[in-house]
Design a binder for these strands. Sequence first.
DNA 1: CTGTTAGCGCCTTCAT
DNA 2: ATGAAGGCGCTAACAG
Lengths: 354, 354
Amino acid sequence: MTVTLADVAARARVSPATVSRVLNGNYPVAAATRERVLRAVDELDYVLNGPASSLAAATSDLVGILVNDIADPFFGIMAGAAQTEIGGQEGTGRAGGEKLAVVCNTGGSPERELTYLTLLQRQRAAAVILTGGALEDPAHIAAMTAKLAKLADAGTRVVLCGRPPLQGSDAIVAALAFDNRGGGRRLTDHLLTLGHRRIGYVAGPVERTTTRDRLEGHRAALRDAGLDGASEELTVHGSYSRRSGYEATLELLRRAPDLTAVVAANDTVALGACAAVRDQGLRIPADISVAGFDDLPFSVDATPALTTVRLPLFEAGARAGRLAMGTESPPPGGIATIPAELMARASTAPPRTG
Amino acid sequence: MTVTLADVAARARVSPATVSRVLNGNYPVAAATRERVLRAVDELDYVLNGPASSLAAATSDLVGILVNDIADPFFGIMAGAAQTEIGGQEGTGRAGGEKLAVVCNTGGSPERELTYLTLLQRQRAAAVILTGGALEDPAHIAAMTAKLAKLADAGTRVVLCGRPPLQGSDAIVAALAFDNRGGGRRLTDHLLTLGHRRIGYVAGPVERTTTRDRLEGHRAALRDAGLDGASEELTVHGSYSRRSGYEATLELLRRAPDLTAVVAANDTVALGACAAVRDQGLRIPADISVAGFDDLPFSVDATPALTTVRLPLFEAGARAGRLAMGTESPPPGGIATIPAELMARASTAPPRTG
DNA sequence: CTGTTAGCGCCTTCAT
DNA sequence: ATGAAGGCGCTAACAG
């Protein structure tokens, strides 16, 4: 039926242990023997039994990458980059000693996030990468901290990518945090410099680290310009979706018809904001400036090209992948802040005068 | 150290076998006993050892979803929908009996596709879903057919989503194929009806089923209109990327300055085409009509809104997920063709006269 | 460098 | 409805 290691051993006239050794390559084996074993493997078309191997070795070659929304390129880019670093050695066809990088879609649900972590713990995953903003609910943070500690105890390497480190948790190999606050600040500074004074803000879902950090940056910029008075009124929360951006912008325009600029939580939301502005018969940027965040590939193609904040998603994902593999050493203190760069484009301009 | 089933059994004062039975739920257990066991599980914070379980049961709860490009929403939407159906029962926290739906990014590389399949075979995956267009290279087809047969032999359910069935392979549970040909045809018919006669085509990568089918539909429409003469010259192949669409369109415009419309392989490519058209100082659709394919969420937000062909990606992905789980019965013959619907929007209009 | 010997933790007949 | 026992296929000491 299904061919086992013992079959290969018999065919190659060696012991099972030897076959195991050449397959795992972590042990000296005579070249001639190795050759014989590999031939037997090919002839028999042998495929290692992963569960058996993992059971015996008490570790598996699974690496989990958790994302909030797999249909959002923000996550796709990071996850793809990480996978490239992890499973990237261009299969020999025999698939020896390779890690299986898999992405798990939580849909932003905290329960599903924990469930996936449990499932990966069950599989004795070699590593786990958590991407994107985290929920700030205390109960969930506590549950996550406990779960990650357990994973780390069991030997799973935990890496955070685009998410701030957990307080006082030593379970984590490394955390790569985006400078969302700084980026948000620079974006609003840009608008202020252009002369805007009435700036609407379409924020992301409440209780998310990304939402809070970007909003904080925005408010810090306003405060320093002596404009924080109206910022509550000019902020609307929504989800990270185009539709949400559309509706929030309509609401903003209703609340404050004198608005001259709208800052969106991310590029997708900004697209919705643009549509709303246009549907109100207003021009971008002549009547209203619009800005996004992330600099996803489509942003430069929007008309007008979207002013936004560039996050090096691919680079960060790749680095997270290497960190998870142990290929790269963690930054000092296990924490690195990834810079965010302002991309001033055509969707922002000085406000109309008068 | 790590708590095992035996520990739970001891705590609950039952045999390991009983614990196994309540955890798997496939066997009658007295309510009182079950209660006691579950309490012990919670108290000990027990997590099943997946590898051990899979080894003993000769099957795992892993379900693999292969995608060509995880950063492309085309795949993200299908994969997300499939995952929802598979891992969707909103975790009880204890994560009992749940499948682990994971997505694997092949990056469009045939080697990596096979490698992932081997890795999943090694894990004794419960099911595998292959999404998106397939490579038409005979050697790769043969290798895939063989590999899928082996997976099926080992009890893995194989489902195709957005990909035509393999010739004479009975390894597959079901194949959901998009009507790319029909969609391509209707799109070009739409342009012909508007009055276009010189239509450029930015095709996808050669040797991909999606590329060929869409192109065939396009050419069939031209042929029926008696216009197939120039179609070779007016076709440029590229990858499924914005950049590729941009460059191919420039090339097309160079070759045939009298073009009045450009059809792109998909929406992402169409965005690049729009940018190229604009950079040449031409207006859409006044000077040149542009159309895409897939109807990804951003298409409606393009300016002008993109005429395209709608594929029910979410519905198809969800159905594939149910098929993989055995929750839904396969279509007659194991094959279903998913219809593609023309979405005529503002990026196409009659050609300028004279 | 290679063979032998024990398990890894769970599921699954087979009894009871 | 529950317990006892064997083995799933592989790896990891330990010898040699």
